[in-house]
Write a protein that binds this DNA or RNA. Structure first.
Lengths: 335, 335
DNA sequence: TTGAAAGCGCTACCAA
DNA sequence: TTGGTAGCGCTTTCAA
């Protein structure tokens, strides 16, 4: 409970001087500063963040809005973010909102108002009122892997990633290619799902092929969802010879479905994912790798830039490079 | 920037009355209250958290200390924690400290002081000064899967979990059983690694067996580490017929090593993990499941209890039940 | 039931 | 270079 007055008394100066000395401002004599530092150290004084914020209007807190904490992509991005923001003196306040039918937390003004200096949004599926709220907060905001019109964005070119995956299969001679995407009902606003699908369609059409509607199935972005999707695909009268999954989790699900049906990968079915999940290599999964950690770092950097800016903000959109990683889950089509 | 004064003016009452009305305190007439509520609504007024905290000394923030964000166990526990704390009006402030040689953040008073009302610690490997700091903060604290003497603990009986895993293998006739644990150098303080090892040793010794020192290898708690460990074990002149890994990630790594060496699991090698990781079933991994999400919830509940307490605190230690989940990675020993 | 005023702990302005 | 003072926005006595 030691306050600035205690330090002032101990150092024999005024609270104002303690404040200046401790924050490294000029117009404090070296002797005074060291006296103050010593006293503060002695009393293990730390300024109350509430009091400081009340005066400065700054909280040193960045809010992070995520749909899930326990899915690889999100936790990895966050991991990349944390370090950089910490180094610059910011704390991370978590808003784990859920997604679609698992939406558990609605952002509202009471949660955010005067609580954060900036926001990092990893979540799609925000309601229009929530987006309006974000604007009303008047704080810098960076969206990762989501489009929030008007705000900075860090991500990858989703369409291109899917094209890479699809072209790899086409180059191997596959012609009947399926796409396992998100959940169309829950993901209506999720550009990621749509863009990746568009990439598949584009790559196919360049070879004069189409994405058969039976070969376009949802996967919920989970392993279980991917397995169900794979199940559906493999039970078609004319099953695909290859699958592009919008995420590695779903791709792994498809692998499970294939295994359960006794299909040998890649002999009977080629599978390619997108992400390069930590565990992708354990399934020898061919995938399009995206720099997840780096996206977190870059988002943090953009936030820091915006926080440091004085003038008007120039919108930033940064897509990081992706790369096809060929492993053992894809092979030339059996003729 | 609307403050309590604006609301007071709009409602034609004093700030004090607004404060009482908005917080649902008694001694406010119904008419006045509704006038105030209407005015607050109209101006979309939200009280400044800094100002409120400054007066009350409460922040409505719980700090969570984790060693990693992007590892399944930690992100899943956190996911369980978040919801419950939110429901009770608490925010989560993240402290992603790292572990061992990847230690990136040292807890210090400036980080925590007056910033959190309580702490959830998922991290081992805190330095003695950090533990002393935690005590000096005088806030409720619950440790998950870690022993912090004197503080509440939520976890599992690690020793028992390892015993279950080992007994399963013994029951299948295995006699040469290996243990893949953490990194002994980095995990000196990590009771989890030691307790699980003790469980293996205990189960073995009940059958008159010992844990051969060559069969006791480190795994870093990662898939890669597990793979290296598996590699080491399989290259022994007398390799084990079965492996207990202290985590599913490491167990999966062992499976990879086996596959790379052309060993068929479970014919040539049985592998059992601990956790029941989300992806464990994709590798058909036999494992000892622990209720991770539930640990997060329970920890949150204990924190809420402690926060609500007025009298002295009674230390709580809660171990949740574990359960052997038999899948396809274990089989009777080949004779 | 309501309001005036003091004060939470700090920073910033203006004098000295 | 330093200190007094006036807030920051709210809550909480104490009076009315």
């Amino acid at each position: 409970m030691t306050s600035i007055h205690d330090v002032a008394r101990a150092a024999g100066v005024s609270p104002a001087t303690v404040s200046r000395a401790l924050r490294g401002m000029d117009r404090v004599s070296p002797q005074t500063r060291s006296k103050v530092l010593a006293a503060a150290q002695e009393l293990s004084y730390v300024a109350s963040p509430s009091a400081t914020s009340l005066v400065s209007g700054k909280t040193s807190v960045v809010g992070v809005v995520v749909p899930f904490l326990n899915r690889w992509f999100f936790s990895s991005v966050l991991d990349g973010t944390e370090q950089l923001l910490r180094q610059h003196g910011y704390h991370l306040l978590l808003f784990n909102v859920g997604r679609g039918s698992a939406r558990t937390l609605m952002l509202d003004q009471r949660l955010l108002w005067k609580r954060v200096d900036a926001l990092l949004v990893l979540s799609a599926d925000l309601e229009p009122e929530e987006v309006a709220l974000l604007a009303a907060l008047h704080v810098p905001l960076v969206a990762v892997d989501v489009d929030l019109p008007g705000w900075d964005r860090v991500g990858i070119d989703d369409r291109h990633a899917a094209e890479l995956a699809t072209e790899h299969l086409l180059d191997l001679g596959h012609r009947r290619i399926a796409y396992v995407g998100g959940n169309p009902e829950e993901d209506v606003h999720l550009a990621t799902a749509l863009d990746r699908e568009a990439g598949v369609v584009a790559a196919l059409s360049r070879r004069g092929l189409e994405l058969d509607s039976a070969c376009r199935v949802r996967g919920d972005w989970t392993v279980r969802g991917g397995r169900d999707a794979g199940e559906r695909l493999l039970s078609l009268r004319q099953p695909p010879t290859a699958v592009v999954a919008a995420s590695d989790e779903m791709a792994i699900g498809v692998l499970c479905a294939a295994r359960e049906r006794g299909r040998i990968v890649p002999r009977d079915l080629s599978v390619v994912g997108i992400d390069d999940h930590d565990l992708a290599f354990t399934h020898d999964l061919t995938t399009v790798a995206q720099p997840v950690h780096e996206q977190g770092r870059l988002a943090a950097q953009l936030l820091l830039d915006a926080l440091a800016e004085t003038g008007p903000h120039q919108r930033q959109v940064r897509n990081l490079p992706v790369e096809l990683v060929v492993r053992g889950s894809t092979a030339p089509v059996c003729s």
